[in-house]
Computed example of a mutant assay.
Amino acid sequence: MDADNKKIKKMNDMQIEAEEIARNTFMDIITYYEGGDISENDINQSNEELKNKYQDVLDYRDELMEEYNLEQIENENSGYYKLKREEE
């Protein structure tokens, strides 16, 4: 695997880890509301961890976008984004 693919794999792995934290946080919220052994403080900590993990993903994505001279363009009709080379 070349260096570029390793960087993309790293970003994908970071995103998967963030989504796993999100899933676990949602499960904790369900447990909390069902009267389980999860405290509000536990949920707050999970939310903070999730926020930090998502920020790590965004920061790494921004590093890659800068390194490869990319910009993110929003498709106004769909709300999705696409990447393209920045105009120089």
Rank of each mutant, 00 (worst) to 15 (best):
M1R: 09
M1S: 11
M1L: 10
D2H: 13
D2I: 11
N5R: 11
K6W: 00
K7S: 12
I8F: 03
I8D: 00
K9D: 09
K10I: 06
K10Y: 06
M11R: 04
N12E: 12
Q15W: 02
Q15I: 03
I16D: 14
E17F: 04
E17M: 07
E19Y: 09
E19L: 10
E19K: 10
E20C: 05
E20L: 08
A22F: 11
A22W: 11
R23F: 14
N24S: 09
F26P: 03
M27Q: 11
D28W: 02
D28V: 02
I29D: 02
I29Y: 05
I30A: 11
I30S: 09
T31E: 13
Y32R: 04
G35T: 03
G35Q: 01
G35N: 03
G36S: 01
D37F: 03
D37W: 00
D37A: 11
D37S: 10
I38T: 06
I38L: 01
S39Y: 00
N41G: 09
N41S: 14
I43P: 00
N44I: 05
N44K: 14
S46P: 00
N47T: 05
N47F: 06
E48N: 15
E49I: 09
L50T: 06
L50A: 06
K51R: 14
K51Y: 13
N52P: 02
K53C: 05
D56Q: 15
V57T: 03
L58F: 06
L58R: 13
D59A: 10
D59P: 02
Y60F: 14
R61C: 08
D62P: 04
D62L: 14
D62T: 14
L64K: 06
M65Q: 12
E67F: 01
Y68V: 07
L70A: 07
L70K: 05
Q72P: 05
Q72D: 07
I73P: 01
N75Q: 00
N75L: 00
N77K: 08
N77V: 02
G79E: 00
Y81A: 06
Y81S: 09
K82V: 06
K82L: 05
L83F: 15
K84S: 12
E88N: 09
